[in-house]
Nucleic acid binder design. Structure first.
Lengths: 335, 335
DNA sequence: TTCTTCTTCTAGATCGTTCTAGTCGCACTA
DNA sequence: TAGTGCGACTAGAACGATCTAGAAGAAGAA
């Protein structure tokens, strides 16, 4: 009763429908070369038996799995949004997605191996931390697309958000609101941290303002720490590395009785789920996860199907204004 | 230069070493039956050619994938912690994990299909929403383990946290602190919502107290809404369905100038990443994700390897006390 | 009628492994 | 001397799909 029955094979379906294995294969792949009536009969038989193609056997013979490998990190909520969107786009393009996570004690290299083992035809890695050489090594075997990091060598494609533009928009916005003392809390060792920090610096200089960078990190606690440092010499605006950091900064301000945005404006980055909450309403630079994910999936599929295109796609982020940014306080503006 | 060369096969190694394919296979698997001298020769040949076994072919033949399918939801941060822990345990047991997400527009059934396609030998589903019948359908093909839901029929195993105990601990703790007006903000349509609500009711009755349930949901906004309702008639303690809901409740209190825990104690559920943040310090019922994950993985592996065990494992959660619960305010205690 | 052409279908090889059932020496026993 | 056991090795059949080459039959053209 509870016995697990052997999973049905092409042969089983063929017998049930009274045709050859080859024909069943044709029908299952949706390939041309089967009469409509037989096609229906085969499909019906397959349905009845609960037939599912064995992807290993298929791959072994044809080297096609229609599987895209996607690597994300469990510790990064923003990645979940990308995963979500990637599924939708992959499905639209006729591909499935195989997921693999970078987790505690599970490095990127391991995640990649797993995906190759299940037969992924391309790899999409969100914010890869591997070296350019290591990435290139894998790129020699399958197409590799880097998402959210663009400095990845010639062999791998990249789909990223224009960090320069994002930071520029952020600085412009705050300057436009009359802010002059704008500091940046950076992302420490996080992937695009360096790039954003440097752009912030040059943008500030471009506006004739003094750049001040406070060390931070990608997490809430990092922001919290930076917030405490900031209080000693409060600026009128701060651009956080990401939303999580912004949250920590805001909490530290709240604890100190500093009001946002009356005393200080705070701008996040990512426009994450969290920024949208009614009691947070964080103004943030949106990288538009769905668009990025779609672009990455599209690029991976194009590569698999042999299109040769320029290696990198860059999308311009945009500002989502909510309640944490406002005009600079009067006294500072006049100073 | 960049040309992809065909990867070497067993046959290539066999020729290079002057032995049969079968012997190479024996050596590569580390199986007994090869003389030490030949073993070295084969190993050397394999190394020279850069041979790597093709896992697809290997698995096709041996019908073992050593792959555990794990289904989680992108919208549930708590699941990420489980994924993390599951990787560790699977790896310790000699298995790999294939992940599949339930996302926007991607139902559970679809996630299951993908995993079966890549050859998962068992399915672990976090908080499955499928009907008992649908679950049983799949359980007939591969072992299925339900994580965080225990009412799943005879055919599927379940590993869950004892919600009754969790709520009982929560109520006991608050009663012990002198609270009498303890309300529960429920989880709406979320998986264990009904169970927790009913246990809350009976526990309150057991303590001779009046049960009050305010409708909520699994998200921050749900908690926010419930918090506003609570303010009309403030209890001295509230037990939230989960940490996210607790956060919303706390925010609504904070906005109304109600102080925690001086005016009201708040208890969360899940002991998530968020509860641990220094500026949140939410007291919470911990289901101990790592332990649950390990138990689920262990059960799945046992099933695959043929052990026949009772179908369900229940773990008792425990309370993690932080800063959001305290003795009931004096005036209420005396009333 | 005979020759093409097209559609529909099938047999059998094939992908790179593992597994089964041997074979071949060689040493040991009775 | 034959039998028996054992270690080292191999041939060839799986596994479950796809692919190639070609057969069978019908339809159309000459």
């Amino acid at each position: 009763m509870t016995e697990l029955q052997r999973r049905p094979t092409l042969m089983d379906v063929a017998e049930a429908a009274g045709v050859s294995r080859a024909l069943v294969s044709i029908v299952m792949r949706g390939a041309p070369g089967a009469a409509e009536s037989t096609r229906q009969r085969v499909l019906e038989a397959a349905r009845q038996l609960g037939y599912r193609a064995d992807s290993r056997a298929r791959l072994l013979r044809s080297s096609r799995t229609k599987l895209l490998g996607l690597i994300f990190s469990t510790s990064h909520p923003f990645h979940a949004e990308i995963v979500d969107a990637a599924y939708a786009e992959a499905s639209a393009r006729g591909y499935e997605i195989a997921l693999s996570a970078v987790a505690n004690g599970r490095p990127e290299a391991r995640a990649i191996e797993t995906l190759l083992d299940v037969g992924a035809e391309a790899l999409i890695i969100i914010a890869p931390t591997l070296s350019v050489d290591d990435l290139a090594l894998h790129a020699r075997q399958v197409p590799v697309v880097s998402l959210l990091r663009d400095n990845v060598g010639d062999l791998v494609d990249s789909v990223s958000s224009d960090d320069d533009a994002g930071i520029a928009i952020a600085v412009d916005h705050l300057v436009g609101l009359g802010h002059r003392r704008i500091v940046h809390v950076d992302g420490g060792a996080a992937v695009s941290s360096d790039r954003r920090r440097e752009t912030y610096r040059s943008e500030m200089i471009r506006h004739g303002l003094q750049a001040v960078v406070v060390p931070g990190g990608p997490g809430e606690e990092d922001g919290m720490g930076a917030g405490r440092i900031l209080q000693a010499n409060l600026p009128t605006a701060v651009i956080a590395f990401n939303d999580r950091s912004a949250l920590g900064i805001m909490e530290s301000f709240r604890a100190a009785g500093i009001s946002i945005p009356a005393d200080v404006s705070v701008l996040g980055y990512d426009d994450s789920h969290f920024a949208k909450l009614s009691f947070v309403q964080l103004s943030s630079v949106s990288q538009d996860a769905p668009l990025l994910a779609a672009a990455a999936v599209g690029r991976a599929v194009d590569r698999i199907e042999g299109e040769k295109l320029p290696g990198s796609v860059v999308r311009t982020p945009h500002l989502v204004l909510r309640k944490t940014t406002a005009r600079a306080p009067a006294e500072t503006r006049t100073s």
